[in-house]
Lab assay of single mutants.
Amino acid sequence: SFQYVPVQLQGGAPWGFTLKGGLEHCEPLTVSKIEDGGKAALSQKMRTGDELVNINGTPLYGSRQEALILIKGSFRILKLIVRRRN
């Protein structure tokens, strides 16, 4: 089963996490790295392996390109929903 975790990061880029996968690579869009001391790490809500399913209220369909555009369009606040295996 899965758990959906809301994450809100503040203060602008860099957000402190790296993505891998996506439709382009025929795999889920997941968090591959969280930078020590970065905003994602400080939130204590994101983990490597989390799947990104929503950015700023926009549902994602797995495209890494789409996710990067939405993330780049976030100035002060980035709201994410990640899906994690229980």
Score class of each variant (00 low, 15 high):
residue 74 S to R: 06
residue 7 V to T: 00
residue 82 V to G: 02
residue 45 K to V: 12
residue 38 G to V: 04
residue 39 K to L: 09
residue 78 L to A: 01
residue 59 P to A: 11
residue 32 S to Q: 11
residue 42 L to C: 10
residue 36 D to N: 09
residue 62 G to C: 01
residue 17 F to R: 03
residue 19 L to Q: 01
residue 85 R to Y: 09
residue 28 P to E: 06
residue 30 T to I: 11
residue 15 W to E: 00
residue 25 H to P: 07
residue 67 A to D: 05
residue 20 K to R: 12
residue 22 G to N: 03
residue 79 K to I: 03
residue 59 P to G: 07
residue 7 V to L: 10
residue 64 R to F: 11
residue 32 S to R: 07
residue 58 T to P: 00
residue 43 S to A: 09
residue 76 R to E: 13
residue 69 I to F: 14
residue 51 E to W: 03
residue 14 P to I: 01
residue 52 L to C: 06
residue 44 Q to M: 12
residue 58 T to L: 09
residue 39 K to S: 07
residue 27 E to M: 13
residue 45 K to A: 11
residue 39 K to W: 06
residue 71 I to L: 13
residue 8 Q to A: 07
residue 41 A to K: 08
residue 50 D to M: 02
residue 73 G to K: 15
residue 36 D to Q: 12
residue 38 G to K: 03
residue 26 C to I: 07
residue 69 I to K: 15
residue 73 G to N: 15
residue 81 I to M: 11
residue 45 K to Y: 07
residue 68 L to T: 11
residue 75 F to W: 09
residue 21 G to H: 00
residue 45 K to L: 13
residue 43 S to W: 02
residue 37 G to W: 07
residue 16 G to E: 04
residue 63 S to M: 06
residue 71 I to S: 04
residue 48 T to I: 12
residue 43 S to E: 07
residue 75 F to I: 12
residue 11 G to A: 00
residue 21 G to M: 05
residue 34 I to R: 02
residue 81 I to Y: 03
residue 6 P to N: 15
residue 6 P to A: 15
residue 70 L to G: 05
residue 48 T to W: 09
residue 6 P to W: 10
residue 50 D to R: 01
residue 44 Q to C: 12
residue 66 E to I: 08
residue 49 G to V: 02
residue 74 S to T: 12
residue 26 C to S: 14
residue 32 S to K: 09
residue 47 R to G: 07
residue 45 K to S: 11
residue 3 Q to H: 14
residue 23 L to P: 05
residue 46 M to G: 03
residue 41 A to M: 10
residue 68 L to W: 08
residue 41 A to F: 08
residue 35 E to A: 12
residue 23 L to H: 09
residue 40 A to T: 05
residue 2 F to K: 03
residue 10 Q to G: 10
residue 68 L to I: 10
residue 52 L to N: 01
residue 77 I to M: 13
residue 64 R to E: 08
residue 76 R to D: 15
residue 73 G to Q: 13
residue 65 Q to Y: 09
residue 45 K to M: 12
residue 24 E to K: 09
residue 51 E to I: 04
residue 23 L to Y: 09
residue 82 V to M: 08
residue 36 D to T: 11
residue 27 E to T: 08
residue 48 T to Q: 12
residue 68 L to R: 12
residue 12 G to L: 04
residue 62 G to R: 02
residue 21 G to N: 06
residue 40 A to M: 01
residue 10 Q to F: 11
residue 5 V to D: 02
residue 38 G to A: 02
residue 13 A to F: 06
residue 6 P to R: 14
residue 47 R to D: 05
residue 22 G to P: 07
residue 59 P to K: 14
residue 21 G to C: 02
